[in-house]
Nucleic acid binder design. Sequence first.
DNA 1: TATGAATGAGTATTCATTCAT
DNA 2: TATGAATGAATACTCATTCAT
Lengths: 201, 201, 201, 201
Amino acid sequence: MSRGNTRQRIQDIALELFAERGYEKTSLREIAEQLGVTKAALYYHFRTKEDLVTSLFEDLVLGPADEVIVWAEARQPTTLETKLEILNRYSACISKATPLVRFMHENQAALRELSVGEQMKARMFTLLELIKDEDAALSDQVRCSSALFTMHSSLFALESSGAGIEEKRRAALEVARELVTSAHHGPAPRPGAETSSARHG
Amino acid sequence: MSRGNTRQRIQDIALELFAERGYEKTSLREIAEQLGVTKAALYYHFRTKEDLVTSLFEDLVLGPADEVIVWAEARQPTTLETKLEILNRYSACISKATPLVRFMHENQAALRELSVGEQMKARMFTLLELIKDEDAALSDQVRCSSALFTMHSSLFALESSGAGIEEKRRAALEVARELVTSAHHGPAPRPGAETSSARHG
Amino acid sequence: MSRGNTRQRIQDIALELFAERGYEKTSLREIAEQLGVTKAALYYHFRTKEDLVTSLFEDLVLGPADEVIVWAEARQPTTLETKLEILNRYSACISKATPLVRFMHENQAALRELSVGEQMKARMFTLLELIKDEDAALSDQVRCSSALFTMHSSLFALESSGAGIEEKRRAALEVARELVTSAHHGPAPRPGAETSSARHG
Amino acid sequence: MSRGNTRQRIQDIALELFAERGYEKTSLREIAEQLGVTKAALYYHFRTKEDLVTSLFEDLVLGPADEVIVWAEARQPTTLETKLEILNRYSACISKATPLVRFMHENQAALRELSVGEQMKARMFTLLELIKDEDAALSDQVRCSSALFTMHSSLFALESSGAGIEEKRRAALEVARELVTSAHHGPAPRPGAETSSARHG
DNA sequence: TATGAATGAGTATTCATTCAT
DNA sequence: TATGAATGAATACTCATTCAT
């Protein structure tokens, strides 16, 4: 029937099922059945289930994310401009892999046992470091962390809004940029946290 | 040894393990072993594994969250003040249940198959509706959604910051309040993110 | 049906099948089927397949062999009398576990990967050390090693002889004793190896 | 790379792995991998796994052993001289195939299911018949059987002795010859087994 | 309140083997 | 001479759950 593209087809179905039903709940039997092949065929293409999921990350986000990081690390110290451009680029790169981002977000517990999970976590950490100032106040760290989270979660949350994925991405990017902008130039004198929502005013 | 409080002890260990290793990866055998009882003992106290996890949500967040919702629904239409107070209250109520919040956040895929997952999702949705304006722009919806996410994730993220949990909670609350304030009815001039610096102008 | 003795029955059937068909070729499914229980029942009584086989060795030969060793080590330096008594005792102790001895003998390759295999090997080594003189000539080492081997293999070899197991055991013991006797008092001048059958004459 | 000799190389690696890890534990995948070819390549050269192992026996011991048997059967009735010469010749022929002998010895259970195993067993039986007198006492049968066993096992046992393989072979041959000599001409009056190691003196 | 013993359905993974190219 | 792709049957093991005691 098909030829040469089986590996790709496995990845496609796997990603779909992983995102839909979760990593642990998705068995290789299901994937194989949905593909119309035997379990053993999967094992011809991927050594283990972990290998399969790893391949998804490698092909879809690890590489792209690394490019962003490499680009960013080349222009340290990091200006606000750079930070915002990191957001732009990262947003672009994950927007091509929405199901995987959703999967990553919703299966953190499962990913923790997987080495690729560690790798992703490390990337996130690096991005966060690049985005936030070294001596940033805790609330500014939260802002930056939240910026990243927001870009992830907006890709699959807000289903009720009826918005398309590209719209959502742009909106999330906007909010993320605000958060990071707001967190920039660190320890500027700021009025009391609880009440003051108006900053830089 | 213990008497009468076994149910409680089961819940404690279960929560700890669920949060640490994930829902699917945590078997009833492990819980029982760590408790020094038989699996069958768990079944005396909880009808199923789902029952056990459900009980955790009911005891720790469903009730408290409902109180917030009830309180908020009683004072519609929702002013900014109310919105911010919702954040205050919700922040307070989840801060007592950090491991469960972490569990919820990191096991969304697993929870989706559980009825208690649906219930939690419904609460989140309701809170979101209360926080955001009905006809809010997409970016404002993102802000509000992000506000909620932020309060959740900050409780267990940012490990590297060395901050205590109460500090983090406060910082997250601050950011959440800003986001919601910013999303509220709009025409406040805000310093520029990329394009839309001037909004609702 | 049965109660309390399931563990024992598992061991019985397992030993029978292990001895008959070999360790690797005997699956837990077979054992369970022959017992009329589910595989899972086996796992209630033994944590792994290795555990099951280990229990057989522990119950049937490790203990008894250790007794022989302890007894022997208590009366060093080892006289010929002691050596011969070691053979007597060891012969007695393995004669109660013929199928296991056969299993051990015929599945050495499989046992090598099992920790209980190492343990048995260690015992054999110790017995050998006790039986042979420290500075024994190579041929005397062969004699002693052969004595042990003989006692093992005679329990299940020589099927064609039609002899009963107790007869075989006695015959093997006799030969083993000769071999060890012949190997005793070390570097006695001996005429040319190839032809010399008359030693100690 | 290599050409024409692939079959040989497969046999070499296979023998090595079979001897090292056992028949069942050695998969064709491993063999192929270690050779740098595909599993399918093995199947070009050997119809089945059993075929592969059979070829090893045929090339290395079945033929040589048959020569010994043919030679011996030609000079019946069997004198002691002939018997000892059988040992000499058999010792010589197996000394060229130590890994295979070890493999045979340590994988008897696995070989029992293989037709080549039956064949080898038949040879051993024939050799035994040639070596022992027809109406030999049981203990003499044990002696002869033990003689054979000894020649096999000494090739790979006694690692701790530090002796070379040729030395070991010679020592084993010596012991085997003694055993067979001792077993020869059967019902000679013999003093009480317990003490007498010196027979035919 | 608990346990001991068991089940049925499932999991990931491995293996020898086949066959078109 | 080989390979790439696949299969069918098996394996050890785990899990949530049940129930008589």
